[in-house]
């Protein structure tokens, strides 16, 4: 968690400082015409399965050219199914109201299981596998005035939210945290981390950059990921902040497609700030 924050903050600071310095010398940003090659259209598969009934979706879409509106062609009439390690097959059907979204109303991820995905689109077959970890637990949440605020007026200093949890010693864990403040997800930072430094211990970590004020309802989700999904998200974040080698995140899909497939166990908690 902290590492991603540090990296993206470092880049943001350096960038801000360059802009600040040369604010006096009018550095400027402008739109330019830049020709880009249009790559062949790729199939995009995003599979997210969670551990409560119906809490799942598999989105199928196509890539589009860079200079277009943010409309992506969805793939309908695909055959999507998931099999667990005991051979049970679950069929995912397209939601009639949301083209490209396939889901199963009763399926839920069970901990310490293995799930395989099969997607058939015309003559293309895409598969993937993912292992689910033990269910994580959020022990508690706290809040306190943020030490990272620019505000000098004590009444308007935002609060930093922190959570406590215990890592599972028997597994190599990777985590993603998501936080909603008043039902709006905070997307400025991607909160991901691994258990390199905290294996098996009780730890606490703050949500840098997610400011909560008096009267806010804070909702958080702690998700366990496998290494492949963690690397996918990490690469996605690095590319966003001007990395040395922007590249397509390594997909855990087999077949001619990009994206990822994950079966996650989660825990959630709500905190209301008085």
């Amino acid at each position: 968690m902290t590492k991603i924050f540090i990296e993206s903050t470092m880049n943001k600071i350096i960038f801000l400082i360059i802009s600040a310095t040369f604010f006096a010398f009018a550095s400027c940003e402008k739109k330019i015409d830049l020709e880009l090659n249009d790559a062949e259209q790729q199939i995009v598969v995003e599979g997210v399965l969670k551990d409560s009934p119906g809490n799942n979706y598999i989105l199928l879409s196509y890539t589009s050219a860079v200079y277009t509106d943010q409309i992506f062609d969805k793939i309908s009439d695909a055959a999507v199914s998931v099999t667990d390690k005991d051979g049970n097959v679950y069929t995912f059907s397209e939601d009639p109201n949301v083209p490209g979204k396939y889901w199963n109303p009763t399926f839920e991820v069970l901990p310490l299981n293995d799930y395989s995905l099969i997607v058939i689109i015309g003559s293309d077959t895409i598969t993937s596998t993912c292992h689910s970890f033990a269910k994580p637990g959020i022990d508690s949440m706290i809040y306190y005035p943020s030490p990272f605020s620019f505000e000098s007026n004590p009444d308007s200093i935002p609060n930093m939210v922190e959570y406590f949890s215990t890592d599972n010693a028997s597994e190599v864990n990777h985590y993603r945290l998501r936080i909603w403040i008043n039902s709006v997800e905070q997307r400025d930072y991607l909160y991901i981390g691994n258990d390199d430094f905290i294996n098996g211990v009780s730890y606490n970590a703050p949500f840098f950059g997610a400011d909560a004020y008096s009267g806010d309802t804070v909702f958080m989700e702690l998700i366990t990921l496998d290494k492949a999904n963690y690397t996918y998200l990490y690469t996605m974040q690095s590319n966003a902040s001007n990395s040395t080698a922007p590249a397509n995140p390594t997909s855990n899909l087999v077949g001619d497609a990009i994206g990822y497939f994950g079966a996650f166990t989660t825990d959630t908690m709500t905190l209301v700030i008085p």
Partner: peptide
């Protein structure tokens, strides 16, 4: 990038 797509609610460069 030579393309883009949507994943995790974000626009990603290809």
């Amino acid at each position: 990038p030579s393309g883009k797509y949507e994943v995790d609610g974000q626009i990603i460069n290809y």
